[in-house]
Design a protein around this nucleic acid. Structure first.
Length: 598
RNA sequence: GGGGGCGUAGCUCAGCUGGUUAGAGCGCUGCCCUGUCACGGCAGAGGCCGAGGGUUCGAGUCCCUUCGCUCCCGCCA
């Protein structure tokens, strides 16, 4: 007989009745009836009920067992007495009558019970992550993650992609997020950086002729955390392809993503064909470049209804600023004052002066509320008709420069959708966001800068692009990049682009953004050199693994799908990272600390 | 860096307009219980009410400061 077990805790069935077996596992739950005592013995594979009574020589020890002790139990499998089967458990028709128990690992009183599904504070859960991971929900999430990654690998390989490993210790890159730095012992004063993404490496692999690359790649960024953004490190399905158009990338990636969501989405509806939504349209309709399409609300421009109207606040905004507009957020089913007032207070809590509204109800079919009275019945009717609203509905309005108010309009649309229960859960609504602007006006630096990734190819005839006058801001700010995102349920799942593989175009793009060739050479010399010696047109994308698993697991927070996550302040409470190091270590690295005054 | 929320027993939480000895459930300890599967019953231990300061006859409760966790803004090729 094996030292620890002949079966796992999820294995025993009626066919095993009468056999002498050995199980090892954790005491999940113990029910002591004095004369008879039940132990639910748990391991990774399942749970089996163990019975002990005073006729067994294991009885005295069984009475001493406590939750989460690790034990080995020998005994005979027997059928449960009629009426005591548990149909909830796969092993529920049988039980193990214990003849011998050995304690393999006793447990101290638990700071975090494994049994049950109560919520516990993040701090305790992270400090005792190993206990939290024993709990069903997290345990399942982590296994789901593994299965999702297996499936992704298989799908990528079937699609003709090869998996590569790229360096973890690399060079600091000037663009993007803050780097994690690693001091060099051999080169005093110099540092490696952990890659924010294997961006340049995958492009170099394309230049090297490997044609189709992918990697489940760790990425490191020293930026502050969010619920959907782990501090420090996260994983991407990083991929790159040569000789492709944007459409080729879509055709390669969309089936992988859709397939994974259909495979693990527990039957939830998955978008059959991801619609393409231009960035500008997404901002206009949804107030976001990562719209939640489960929310049916589509905003509209209703400036005409307010221009020169009796509602002076909006009329003046429109009269005084040619860029100003008024947008409407329709709220079907929100046609009562209580709801409109609640939205108004919410807006004030968001730092807005308020949220104008009109609502329609029985007896006031022409529109109710102060705003309706100010603009009059004709204009109110015009709004109702434009948005298809009637009795029982409401509509909210935001005014000003769209570029400035979308940061509020987008969340307002979400809020209305949530409050009115318009968001259809149990669906994965995907879309591609395309046509991102290549450049944007940096208010901070008072100059044109890259809007997103400087490696993206501008969607503009190459000769015309090379001939651009850097002072022609209007034309330049209108140029789109061949860049795209996948968005699902309001979560940005991935970002990608057709890359700029032409050194002359790249030099021009950097020149437009105000960077000289010396900067380009210094920061991206390797990349530039590679593009000089025969670079294929190429492009790719990098879906976030953690976010995919988060959506599939139905979780709101990345920590629920990462085995050993850090907390919001980028601390690992279990391992105690970051930590101080010895003077000797610092000396070897030629580092002297210069700590902030406290 | 900024804003919101939270902080009371090992854990989850209650504790009203400030009022005498701060409660419940789970867990823990002891006793009882031979068919439970959230077993049940009885008894008990366990509290710097995050920390510091203030107001008050009196503070878990009000005010200020500070620390911790979390959510958001900034930031995020």
């Amino acid at each position: 007989m094996h030292r620890y077990r002949t079966h796992t805790c999820g294995a025993l069935r009626e066919s095993d009745i009468g056999h002498e077996v050995r199980l090892s596992g954790w005491c999940h739950r113990i029910r002591d009836h004095g004369g008879v005592l039940f132990i639910d013995l748990r391991d990774h594979y399942g749970m089996t009920q163990v019975v002990v009574d005073p006729d067994s020589k294991a009885f005295p020890l069984a009475e001493k067992l406590r939750a989460e002790w690790v034990v080995r139990i020998d005994g005979k499998v027997r059928i449960r007495p009629a009426g005591t089967e548990n149909p909830e458990m796969p092993t529920g028709k049988v039980e193990l009558y214990a003849s011998e128990i050995e304690v393999l690992g006793p447990a101290a009183e638990l700071p975090l019970p494994v049994f049950g599904d109560q919520e516990y504070p993040e701090e305790v859960r992270l400090k005792y992550r190993f206990l939290d991971l024993r709990r069903e929900r997290l345990h399942n999430n982590i296994m789901l993650r593994g299965r999702v990654i297996d499936s992704i690998r298989r799908r990528m390989k079937d699609g003709g992609f090869f998996e590569f490993q790229t360096p973890i210790l690399t060079a600091s890159s000037p663009e993007g997020a803050r780097d994690y730095l690693v001091p060099s012992r051999i080169h005093p004063g110099k540092f490696y950086a952990l890659p924010q993404a294997p961006q340049q490496f995958k492009q170099l692999l394309m230049v090297a002729g490997f044609d189709r690359y992918f990697q489940i790649a760790p990425c490191f960024r020293d930026e502050d955390a969010r619920a959907d953004r782990s501090p420090g490190e996260f994983y991407q399905l990083d991929l790159e392809m040569s000789f492709v158009t944007q459409q080729d990338v879509f055709d390669a990636v969309e089936p992988v993503i859709r397939g994974v969501f259909e495979e693990f989405g527990a039957g939830k509806h998955v978008t059959a064909k991801f619609p393409l939504i231009p960035y500008a349209e997404a901002m206009r309709k949804y107030g976001s470049d990562k719209p939640d399409l489960r929310n049916p609300i589509v905003m509209q421009d209703v400036s005409a209804a307010f221009r020169d109207s009796g509602f002076k606040v909006f009329a003046n905004i429109l009269a005084n600023d040619p860029k100003a507009e008024v947008w409407a957020i329709p709220a079907k089913g929100g046609g009562n004052r209580a709801f409109c007032d609640r939205m108004n207070s919410w807006a004030q809590g968001e730092g807005q002066p308020g949220l104008g509204y009109i609502f329609w109800r029985e007896g006031e079919e022409g529109g109710a509320g102060p705003l309706a009275k100010n603009i009059g019945p004709e204009r109110t009717k015009q709004i109702a008709e434009q948005l298809g609203l009637g009795v029982g509905d409401a509509c909210f309005f935001v005014a000003g420069q769209p570029a400035k108010f979308v940061k509020f309009a987008g969340p307002a649309r979400t809020k209305v959708g949530e409050e009115l229960g318009l968001i259809v859960k149990d669906r994965f609504e995907f879309c591609w966001i395309v046509d991102f602007p290549m450049f944007e006006w940096s208010e901070e630096e008072k100059k044109i800068d890259f809007s997103h990734n400087p490696f993206s190819m501008p969607n503009y005839p190459i000769d015309d692009f090379l001939a651009l006058d850097p002072a022609d801001a209007e034309t330049i700010l209108g140029i789109k990049a061949i860049q795209y995102d996948i968005v699902c349920n309001g979560v940005e799942l991935s970002s990608g682009a057709i890359r700029n593989h032409r050194p002359d175009v790249m030099k021009k793009a950097f020149a437009i953004a105000g960077y000289g060739e010396d900067v380009l050479e210094q920061k991206f010399g390797g990349m530039l050199r590679a593009l000089t010696y025969g670079a294929p047109p190429h492009g790719g994308i990098a879906p976030g693994i953690d976010r995919i698993v988060m959506l599939l697991a139905g979780e709101e927070n990345l920590r629920e799908v990462v085995v050993f996550p850090m907390n919001q302040r980028a601390e690992d409470l279990l391992m105690g990272a970051p930590s101080e190091v010895t003077q000797k270590q610092l000396r070897e690295l030629h580092i002297r600390l210069n700590l902030p005054q406290k």
